[in-house]
């Protein structure tokens, strides 16, 4: 019996998932209680010692807690107790705003660099120096100048997502096939119309690839940035739950960060497919 590759891959995926859950469950399950320990000492050692249970939550604990969160994603019990939906919405909002500003800056600037060899050479040293700076290194400077932690986080998202977009746009624009440019030239198409009708569609797949890399980096950076600035967001939630020593909530947050990151990537992948043309 020959099954499709997709089906066989799904079977293997599920098997790996179940094996992982199984190992996790076995590793964290309750062992026989430790009766020989003196009660005084057991009190000091806490739950781990008295019931023989690991402090690391098992998959069932995480599942139950996750269900609890999913039932009430948007509750708000004050500054340190908000639903996961609200925390994620804050993070996505910051990423979205910083990313949007980066798009507005990077794509026109990328066009300029790609179309003008002079600007390419003139701006190259700045880009080369600014690009490798860790986005979080900007944080103190941002906090000092902007004086608002939330805006500083948005600025950090902007600065980290601008470079891949800028470089990919510049590369895509510069690499547009000469013959397509020549077609536009022989048809006496003006610079602006040429940029929108020939260069933009030709460079769009490369530009979208840069945007896809950027959204991935932005989502990586927002967690770290929110741990620093605090207040709201999924990054803050992770740090807050660590302080509460709720490993269960930390694991749930990690899972959700992964899922949201995947969704953001898939959205950009879909856009990329839309503008890709077969040759």
């Amino acid at each position: 019996m020959i099954q499709s590759l997709r089906f066989r891959a799904a079977v293997v995926s599920i098997a790996i998932f179940l094996a992982f859950i199984g190992v996790w469950h076995l590793a964290t399950r309750q062992t026989a209680s430790v009766g020989t320990m003196s009660p005084e000492y057991a009190k000091l050692m806490g739950l781990t010692a008295t019931s023989g249970k690991s402090a690391m939550p098992g998959p069932l604990d995480v599942g139950a807690k996750l269900w609890e969160h999913l039932k009430r994603p948007f509750y708000d019990n004050g500054p340190n107790d908000k639903g996961l939906g609200i925390q994620l919405a804050y993070s996505i909002g910051r990423v979205g705003l910083g990313y949007l500003i980066a798009v507005i800056v990077a794509i026109p600037l990328g066009f300029l660099i790609g179309m003008s060899p002079l600007m390419n050479k003139a701006l190259d040293p700045f880009i080369q120096v600014l690009k490798p700076i860790s986005p979080l290194a900007w944080m103190p400077l941002a906090l000092y100048t902007i004086k608002d932690s939330s805006l500083s986080a948005i600025f950090v998202i902007f600065i980290c997502s601008v470079w891949p977009m800028l470089l990919n746009t510049a590369f895509g624009v510069a690499a547009v096939r000469k013959e397509w440019i020549n077609v536009a030239r022989t048809l006496e198409v003006g610079t602006f119309r040429r940029a929108f009708t020939v260069i933009l569609p030709a460079a769009a797949p490369t530009i979208l690839t840069g945007m896809r890399i950027s959204i991935g980096i932005a989502w990586l950076v927002i967690v770290a940035a929110e741990m620093l600035v605090g207040g709201t967001g999924i990054g803050y939630f992770v740090w807050n739950e660590w302080n509460n020593l709720s490993i269960t909530n930390v694991i749930i947050a990690i899972l959700l960060i992964g899922i949201v990151g995947m969704l953001l990537d898939q959205i950009l992948a879909r856009f990329t497919r839309m503008v890709t043309f077969p040759e």
Binding site: R177, E179, W180, T186
Partner: peptide, 13 residues
Amino acid sequence: RAVIFQSHALLPW
């Protein structure tokens, strides 16, 4: 002056 290119140079999109 219209040009017919060797590589046809059609816009693929």
